[in-house]
């Protein structure tokens, strides 16, 4: 095989749109996952349902917006808020709208198939939104289908995009979003479940923790590895596992890989801030152990993780997307000659 120019340059604006397109699809999927698993838990444990819904509002980190617009965490309120609220920027509908708008500005840079799938996905949710409230089995089916649509979209991206910069920016977007969301669900559930000292080791606890695992499709993989559920193991699996695709460590590891592919520098070295930050975070996770996480406090660890993920996001923006002034053209040319 001849070695050509490894990867063509990509417009900053296009890279940014692809990154956000993938990120918003992932966001919609994760919201659907949280709702789906909550609906299922309620089927097993129908009393005090409001208590089940409030943590979902907390995972969003947008509690203030919710209180202001909705008040109580009734199932109707939370479902509306997270699913169809066009004014709330992170609802499933808004996320898909944003994903699609980003894709629309770069449809020539992704494959037709991926665009068509995202377009169908959007129309599916938009139709459901205009049909109004979802009830009973239709409700559960809807969130399942959102998940399926997202999987189909990601599958098409993986099967139709060359592994060039475009794909790597999409991958970066979805993995960073996923890492963030897994950390949030863990944090909120840990916070709500742990104070209930009576429940530790009871069936209810087991049910709740298996729901957390199910919400990130981790239940079966977890069972294969550990068989019985303990809080330590759940944390270890969702934070530190390097093989499970929704575990934080996995996401960070492959996001790090993608950013190195984009820049063209070898793994283990860095040329810019995103590579440096992701590499450092990856090393932290690879060499961490669950006991020290629990001892330090899961909440503190997750807080720190989210801060670091945000810093990575800002560094990506500054390095790849921000419009540099014309005066730097000369500098870049010189730099290229030395490379």
């Amino acid at each position: 095989m001849t070695l050509e120019k490894a990867s063509f340059a990509m417009l900053s604006r296009v890279a940014e749109s692809i990154y956000w397109m993938a990120r918003y699809v992932e966001r919609a999927e994760n919201t659907a996952r949280f709702i789906d698993v909550t609906l299922n838990v309620i089927l097993d444990q129908p009393e005090n349902t409001n208590q089940q819904w409030d943590p979902l509002v907390q995972t969003t980190g947008d509690v203030e917006f919710f209180r202001e617009h909705y008040g109580d965490s009734t199932p109707e309120n939370v479902l509306r808020f997270l699913t169809f609220d066009a004014e709330y920027p992170n609802s499933i509908l808004s996320s898909l709208n944003a994903a699609r708008e980003n894709a629309r500005t770069v449809r020539e840079a992704i494959s037709s198939e991926a665009w068509e799938q995202l377009n169908s996905f959007y129309h599916f949710v938009k139709r459901a939104a205009s049909n109004g409230r979802l009830n009973g089995p239709a409700q559960i089916d809807f969130y399942q289908e959102v998940k399926q649509h997202s999987h189909l979209f990601n599958g098409i991206l993986d099967a139709t995009l060359p592994r060039g910069k475009g794909w790597h920016f999409a991958n970066l977007g979805r993995l960073l979003e996923r890492a963030d969301k897994t950390s949030r669900i863990l944090d909120v559930k840990y916070f709500t479940l742990l104070p209930n000292a009576y429940d530790v080791g009871t069936t209810l606890d087991d049910l709740q923790w298996s729901a957390v695992l199910r919400s990130v499709s981790a239940f079966e993989a977890f069972r294969k590895r550990y068989h019985t559920i303990t809080v330590h193991r759940v944390v270890e699996f969702l934070v530190l596992d390097g093989r499970f695709p929704r575990a934080i460590s996995f996401c960070v590891n492959w996001a790090n890989d993608s950013v190195h592919q984009i820049v063209g520098s070898p793994l283990g070295a860095y040329r810019n801030e995103p590579e440096q930050r992701l590499g450092r975070l990856r090393a932290e996770l690879v060499y961490a152990d669950v006991d020290s996480i629990i001892n330090r406090g899961l909440h503190e660890v997750v807080d720190d993780l989210q801060r670091q993920l945000n810093d990575v996001g800002s560094a990506i923006h500054e390095t790849f997307f921000a419009m540099r002034p014309v005066e730097q053209i000369q500098a870049t040319q010189v730099q290229q000659q030395y490379q």
């Binding site: 340059a9 990509m10 417009l11 910069k165 984009i262 790849f320 053209i329 730099q335």
Partner: peptide, 9 residues
Amino acid sequence: YMRTTDGFE
């Protein structure tokens, strides 16, 4: 030139 993730092309 156009602004790319690798600089100006």
